[in-house]
Amino acid sequence: MARNRRDEELILRIARMRYDQKLAQHEIAKQLAVSESTISRALKAAMDLGFVEIQITPYAMRDFELERRLVQRFGLEFAVVVQPRAGAQNAYEILGRAIARTVEDRLTPGTVLGVSDGDTVAAVAAAIRRGKSSDVDVVSLIGGVGAPQIPSHSSEVCRMLAAGLGARAWQLPVPAIVDDVVAARGLLETASVKAVFDLVRRMTVALVGIGSISPRATVFRHGVIDNAYIETIAARGAVGTICGRFFGPDGKPVASEFDERTLSVTLEDLARAPLGIAAALGPNKAPAIRAAIQGRIVNALGTDSDTARALLEG
């Protein structure tokens, strides 16, 4: 028998209550004043209609031995290592889902979650679901990068994470780098920007991408800093970048002429977060990831198996 639109809307509502809000079937039945058997039939119909798909969880794609070795080698709080398989989703999606589940489990009332820009962090934002508490503030760690409609844009990452968690979003409504120091100082004194940076300094969890010194790094790829500067900052010893800040192989900051004009978290403030999670993949990033860990800029890692092996071999 064909279902009418109202039937499908009810089925979708029940599916969302079960899988997005994580309510038990008897709780849904009570709220909607229907029988549990009605809920069971609706959930089966949701599967048949394609509203719900069954997938292998990212937990099943994790390499626990590599995670153990990374934690032991680098003294990490935890490591999440995924093994993308042929025919499965792309590595960013799998890693994003795996990190998202880990982040959700660690959010407690009053958490301030700082987030950067970048493809891997954007994949986490796309996969995030409501955690144990919605009393969470999500705050951007860097001003706008690129066009706002790009998923890896800092404002979009912040918005998506907050929406998925049911949390409060604190976006940073300024460019990542402004034209001169006077303009930067003026913006930092405005009430809206000052409030965001005050929250940044109180963050309890940080989730950041790490870029190598290459055209693929977000800060260069989105045109925040011209690619011609890559050779200059590399010659000064930089091996990686986080939120437009550069660091060397020991994890110590490498000065650039953009520092005083950059509106983003400092590496020092980032390192003060009790939990700092790097979300990055690609063996080419291993030197930058290793430096960020050894310099204690971050103390947890989400990556793929190829990158994990490159880290352990270095």
Rank of each mutant, 00 (worst) to 15 (best):
Y92N: 15
E9P: 01
L12W: 03
D7F: 03
G87W: 10
S155Q: 10
V138D: 11
E268G: 01
R236S: 14
A147S: 05
R97W: 11
V265E: 04
L113H: 12
S35Q: 09
R168S: 13
P84I: 05
A286R: 09
A184E: 07
G237S: 10
V208G: 04
D179A: 14
K44E: 13
V138N: 03
Q171D: 09
P173F: 05
R13S: 13
R129Q: 14
I99K: 03
L312K: 07
A60H: 08
L172C: 04
D250F: 00
V298Y: 04
F246M: 13
R185I: 03
K252C: 03
A286T: 11
V80Q: 00
A310P: 10
I150V: 15
A255V: 13
T241R: 01
A310T: 00
A24T: 00
Q25K: 07
A79H: 10
M203R: 12
R168F: 03
I128W: 04
L172I: 11
V182G: 00
G75Q: 10
L95C: 12
M17G: 07
I242T: 06
S154K: 04
D117A: 15
E36C: 03
F197Q: 07
T102D: 13
G146Y: 02
V157Y: 03
I213L: 12
I213T: 06
R41W: 08
R62H: 11
V239S: 11
A234H: 04
A147W: 00
T57W: 00
R69S: 11
V193C: 05
G211L: 01
S192A: 15
V174D: 02
T307K: 08
G143M: 08
L275D: 09
Q31E: 15
R272T: 12
A15I: 10
Q171K: 10
A238T: 04
M17Y: 09
E260A: 14
E257N: 01
A271I: 09
N284R: 09
T120H: 14
R216Y: 03
P84Y: 05
R68Q: 14
V224C: 03
D198G: 00
P287V: 12
D304G: 06
I177H: 02
P58L: 08
T190M: 07
Q25G: 09
P58A: 05
V208T: 13
D259Q: 04
